[in-house]
Amino acid sequence: SIKEIEKEEIIKVLKEVNFNKKLASEILGIPLRTLYKRLKEYGI
């Protein structure tokens, strides 16, 4: 599903940037606030 793909992509990017959420949100092209929402939604 799209949610699974998105979750995997978020985890992959977070690992690449050593869990720097600000940098991860910039790489993913989403606002930091949205990233936090996704992390909560996906239980990351």
Rank of each mutant, 00 (worst) to 15 (best):
N18S: 08
K40P: 02
K40A: 13
K21Y: 15
P31N: 11
K21D: 03
K3H: 13
R33S: 14
E8D: 11
E4N: 11
F19L: 03
K40S: 08
G43R: 07
L14C: 03
I2G: 13
G29Y: 02
N18P: 02
I44M: 08
L35T: 00
E41Q: 09
E9N: 15
E6K: 09
I27Q: 06
Y42G: 03
Y36F: 09
L23C: 07
E26G: 06
K22M: 10
P31A: 11
L14M: 10
K37S: 08
I30P: 00
I11K: 06
Y36K: 15
E26F: 10
Y36D: 11
E16Y: 10
L23R: 13
K7R: 14
S25K: 02
L14G: 00
I44L: 12
K40F: 11
R33L: 14
V13A: 08
G43N: 09
I30Y: 04
P31M: 05
V17S: 07
E16T: 10
K12Q: 09
K15T: 11
I10R: 00
E16L: 13
E41W: 06
K3P: 10
E4L: 12
K22F: 10
I5D: 10
I2A: 14
L35I: 04
V13L: 07
K40G: 06
Y36V: 15
I27E: 03
I5Y: 12
G43V: 05
I11W: 10
I30H: 01
E8S: 12
L35W: 02
F19E: 03
N18G: 12
L39F: 03
E9M: 15
E26V: 13
A24C: 08
E16Q: 13
S25W: 01
I11C: 09
E9W: 15
V13Y: 02
V17A: 09
I5E: 09
K40L: 14
I11M: 14
K37E: 15
S25Q: 02
I44V: 07
R33N: 13
L23I: 09
R38F: 15
N20W: 05
G29V: 02
E41H: 06
I5P: 12
I44E: 05
I30Q: 01
V17K: 03
K37N: 10
T34E: 15
I27A: 06
L35G: 00
E26C: 07
P31K: 08
L23W: 07
S1C: 13
R33C: 12
I11S: 04
I27H: 05
I44S: 04
L23A: 10
I10L: 13
E9Q: 15
V17Y: 05
G29S: 05
E4M: 10
K15D: 04
K3T: 12
L32I: 09
Y36Q: 14
E26A: 12
Y42W: 12
L39K: 01
E16W: 08
I10V: 06
E26Y: 10
L39D: 01
K40I: 13
N20G: 02
S25A: 15
T34C: 09
K40R: 13
K40E: 13
G43A: 07
L23S: 06
E6M: 12
I27K: 10
K3Q: 12
Y36S: 09
N18Y: 08
E6Q: 12
L32H: 02
I30S: 01
N20T: 02
L28W: 01
K37G: 05
I10P: 00
I2H: 13
I5G: 11
E6D: 11
F19N: 09
I10T: 08
E4C: 13
S25H: 03
K3R: 14
K40Q: 12
P31H: 07
I27R: 11
Y42S: 04
E9S: 12
I30R: 01
E26N: 08
R38C: 10
I44D: 04
K3G: 11
K22W: 09
K22G: 05
I10H: 02
I10K: 00
A24S: 02
G29A: 05
I10C: 04
I11T: 05
L39W: 03
E4F: 09
L32Y: 04
F19Q: 05
G43D: 10
K40T: 07
K21L: 15
K12V: 04
V17T: 11
N18K: 10
E6T: 14
E4G: 09
K37A: 13
T34S: 08
I2Y: 08
K40N: 07
R33A: 15
I5Q: 13
L28E: 00
S1G: 12
E8K: 12
K21T: 15
Y36L: 15
I2L: 14
E9A: 14
P31T: 15
V13W: 03
N20I: 04
E6C: 11
I44T: 05
K12D: 04
F19D: 05
I10F: 09
I44Y: 10
I10D: 01
E4S: 10
E6Y: 09
K22S: 07
E4T: 11
E41N: 04
E6N: 11
L39A: 02
K7Y: 12
I10Q: 01
K7T: 07
N20Q: 05
L32V: 06
T34P: 02
Y42N: 03
E6L: 11
I27T: 05
V17I: 04
L39H: 01
K3I: 12
E9R: 15
L28H: 01
P31F: 04
P31W: 05
L32D: 02
Y42V: 05
G29W: 02
E8Q: 14
E6A: 11
L35D: 00
N20K: 04
K3C: 09
R33P: 08
L32P: 04
K15Q: 12
N18T: 03
I5S: 11
I11Q: 06
L23Y: 06
K21A: 15
P31I: 03
E41I: 06
N18D: 08
K3F: 10
I2D: 14
V17G: 02
I5V: 12
K22L: 11
E41P: 02
L28Q: 00
G43C: 11
E9D: 10
G29T: 03
E6V: 08
N20C: 08
K7H: 08
S25L: 02
A24F: 01
I2C: 10
I30L: 08
V13I: 11
K37V: 07
P31S: 15
L35F: 07
S25M: 03
E4A: 12
E16N: 09
R38K: 15
N18Q: 08
E4R: 09
